[in-house]
């Protein structure tokens, strides 16, 4: 199991929550940007998970699946300790909500499977294989509620079939038939209730659901080379406008991170000393967005950076209202590069 997980973990870091649009994207003169979805599917839960510090979701899931497959036919308790290391693996608590959701579902299946063998021993093997298949699928699966729900529904239906006689719960939720009928008095199982909750949630607030999956897109930085030793970052004002941040702030961060200096030229383009490729600037911008733009609570990029009472900068989220302080930009140590003679003067 874990062997099969490896490649996906290897592959995972390349996925970024802050995606840059394709290079071909045309930026019109009036500043309007036509966005083309990147070919990389954004199977990302959080802004944090691509940083090396936090293990990717698949790793966390892998830890969970390993532990749970070991205790698959154990008591219902077995799933709970398994969930804990997975939780610990991501102390940032950023995408815990989503992960928990997933976990709960998988865990439920486990419990179901654990309860099953009493009915039929032969079923267990089938159940296990089915479960494994599902788990393998989970990390790769796109983060669409619909898909998850489908899988959940399928499994729920199968589980109900295995459980046979008592609880056959079916019916169309939207049409209000079967168990969802208005005058139905049977108690509804947890699974269909849960799926109904998510279906309704996705239905009623479409933008809410999409914030978790859609990544924040900004136009790609345009890098030109000036001479041999300078790089021109042409569309900085545009990117800053999109991020709603002051040019100076972004510039200071860029210089601090790249360990160089530079200036702005007549048409507000940024001239950076040193050779930098677009990719490298992208990476720095990405970390900037994670640190200074996205809201850590709801991951919305719709935030404002403002100076607080005591020289601290605060980010206020416009969508969820949370407020957090951010670190001031520090240059840190920078070694002396270039001729010593020049430095002396």
């Amino acid at each position: 199991m874990s062997g099969t997980e490896e490649p996906s973990i290897q592959r995972r870091p390349s996925r970024k929550s802050v995606a840059f649009t394709e290079e071909k994207v045309v930026v019109d003169a009036d500043g309007s940007v036509t966005l083309v979805p990147t070919p990389i599917d954004d199977n990302k839960d959080s802004a944090m998970s691509h940083t090396p510090r936090t293990p990717p979701l698949s790793a966390a899931l892998g830890a969970f699946t390993d532990a749970s497959s070991a205790t698959a036919d154990g008591a219902a308790d077995g799933a709970a300790p398994a969930a804990i290391p997975a939780l610990d693996a991501n102390p940032d608590g950023l995408d815990l909500t989503l992960m928990k959701k997933k976990k709960k579902k998988v865990k439920k299946d486990d419990d179901e499977a654990a309860g099953e063998p009493a009915a039929a021993d032969g079923e267990e093997a089938i159940d296990l294989s089915m479960k494994k298949k599902k788990k393998k699928k989970v990390p790769k699966e796109e983060d669409e509620f619909a898909k998850k729900l489908e899988a959940l529904n399928l499994e729920g239906a199968e589980g109900a079939e295995a459980a046979a006689e008592e609880n056959v719960q079916e019916g169309d939720m939207d049409k209000g038939t079967g168990i969802w009928a208005h005058d139905e008095s049977r108690t509804i199982n947890y699974d269909p209730l849960l799926s109904r909750f998510f279906a309704l949630l996705a239905q009623k607030n479409p933008d809410h659901a999409s914030t978790g999956t859609r990544s924040y897109k900004i136009p790609p930085p345009q890098c030109l080379r000036e001479g041999n030793k300078k790089t021109i970052f042409a569309n900085l004002p545009e990117i800053c406008k999109r991020m709603k941040r002051a040019d100076e702030h972004v510039t200071a961060y860029l210089f601090a991170e790249l360990g160089t200096s530079g200036s702005t030229d007549g048409s507000r383009r940024l001239v950076i000393k040193g050779r930098f490729q677009q990719k490298q600037i992208e990476n720095v911008l990405r970390t900037y967005i994670i640190e200074y733009v996205t809201c850590k609570t709801c991951r919305s990029p719709n935030t404002e950076l403002s100076k607080g009472e005591n020289r601290l900068y605060f980010i206020t989220c416009n969508s969820c209202g949370s407020r957090r302080s951010v670190q001031a930009i520090k240059t840190g140590f920078s070694a002396q590069v270039g001729k010593r003679k020049k430095m002396k003067v």
Binding site: G259, R275, G332, A335
Partner: peptide, 13 residues
């Protein structure tokens, strides 16, 4: 941190 020097040389601090 990393710093660029001349050419493709770099420093790590």
């Amino acid at each position: 941190r990393i710093q660029q020097r001349n050419g493709r040389k770099t420093l790590t601090t």
